[in-house]
Amino acid sequence: MKEITTTELAKKMETEKGLNIIDVREDEEVAQGMIPGAKHIRLSEIPERVNEMDKNQHHFIVCRSGGRSGKACEFLSSQGYEVTNVAGGMLDWNGEVKK
């Protein structure tokens, strides 16, 4: 599984516009703040909402620490999606957050 650190993702966000970031945390976690521009799809909803993700685009998957996003990456990869797990998740995120 491909992984990216939160520092690498933050740098990528500075140089590339329109990155597809999917936050798979629960509602109460997201209420505390999420990466600006990220789309919220709870891990449990990924199978039924997978059609909301463009198969021709790369997606960065984030959760609290990297575990749930890893599971999402495994599932999405098996469905033919190009995904990268954000290692360390929001616990390691030092960038801006939106509430």
Results as ranks from 00 to 15, higher is better:
residue 59 H to C: 10
residue 38 A to I: 03
residue 65 S to W: 05
residue 59 H to P: 01
residue 62 V to N: 04
residue 12 K to A: 07
residue 15 T to A: 13
residue 31 A to N: 10
residue 50 V to G: 06
residue 6 T to Y: 11
residue 12 K to P: 01
residue 75 F to W: 14
residue 38 A to W: 07
residue 9 L to W: 07
residue 82 E to L: 14
residue 31 A to S: 13
residue 39 K to I: 14
residue 71 K to C: 00
residue 51 N to A: 15
residue 23 D to C: 05
residue 34 M to P: 09
residue 28 E to S: 14
residue 39 K to R: 15
residue 98 K to A: 08
residue 81 Y to D: 03
residue 7 T to S: 04
residue 96 E to A: 09
residue 6 T to Q: 15
residue 44 S to D: 15
residue 55 K to P: 04
residue 77 S to A: 11
residue 84 T to R: 02
residue 70 G to H: 02
residue 38 A to V: 06
residue 24 V to Y: 01
residue 79 Q to C: 08
residue 56 N to M: 09
residue 71 K to Q: 13
residue 70 G to S: 08
residue 87 A to P: 04
residue 36 P to N: 13
residue 9 L to T: 07
residue 93 W to E: 14
residue 22 I to R: 06
residue 37 G to V: 03
residue 67 G to P: 07
residue 48 E to S: 15
residue 46 I to C: 12
residue 96 E to D: 04
residue 73 C to Q: 07
residue 82 E to F: 09
residue 81 Y to R: 01
residue 31 A to G: 15
residue 81 Y to K: 04
residue 13 M to L: 13
residue 1 M to L: 12
residue 17 K to T: 13
residue 8 E to T: 08
residue 21 I to Q: 05
residue 82 E to Q: 14
residue 89 G to M: 02
residue 61 I to V: 06
residue 3 E to M: 08
residue 76 L to A: 12
residue 35 I to K: 12
residue 95 G to Y: 07
residue 85 N to H: 02
residue 96 E to W: 03
residue 87 A to T: 00
residue 68 R to P: 05
residue 44 S to P: 07
residue 78 S to D: 11
residue 7 T to M: 06
residue 48 E to L: 09
residue 4 I to S: 10
residue 63 C to N: 00
residue 36 P to W: 14
residue 69 S to E: 02
residue 93 W to K: 05
residue 30 V to D: 06
residue 93 W to V: 04
residue 64 R to K: 12
residue 53 M to W: 12
residue 23 D to F: 00
residue 63 C to R: 00
residue 7 T to R: 10
residue 63 C to E: 00
residue 17 K to D: 12
residue 91 L to K: 15
residue 98 K to W: 10
residue 64 R to C: 02
residue 6 T to W: 13
residue 53 M to P: 01
residue 32 Q to W: 05
residue 59 H to F: 13
residue 61 I to S: 00
residue 24 V to A: 06
residue 94 N to H: 00
residue 85 N to Q: 01
residue 60 F to A: 00
residue 34 M to F: 09
residue 69 S to I: 02
residue 43 L to S: 10
residue 40 H to C: 02
residue 28 E to Y: 15
residue 90 M to P: 04
residue 10 A to Y: 12
residue 84 T to K: 04
residue 54 D to N: 08
residue 27 D to A: 15
residue 2 K to L: 07
residue 20 N to A: 09
residue 6 T to V: 12
residue 95 G to I: 03
residue 46 I to H: 13
residue 89 G to P: 09
residue 16 E to Q: 08
residue 19 L to C: 00
residue 34 M to N: 14
residue 74 E to D: 11
residue 54 D to A: 05
residue 72 A to E: 02
residue 96 E to G: 06
residue 48 E to P: 04
residue 63 C to D: 10
residue 11 K to Y: 15
residue 54 D to V: 03
residue 87 A to K: 01
residue 23 D to Y: 10
residue 63 C to W: 02
residue 14 E to N: 01
residue 38 A to Q: 04
residue 75 F to P: 03
residue 53 M to V: 06
residue 62 V to Y: 03
residue 73 C to F: 06
residue 75 F to L: 10
residue 12 K to V: 01
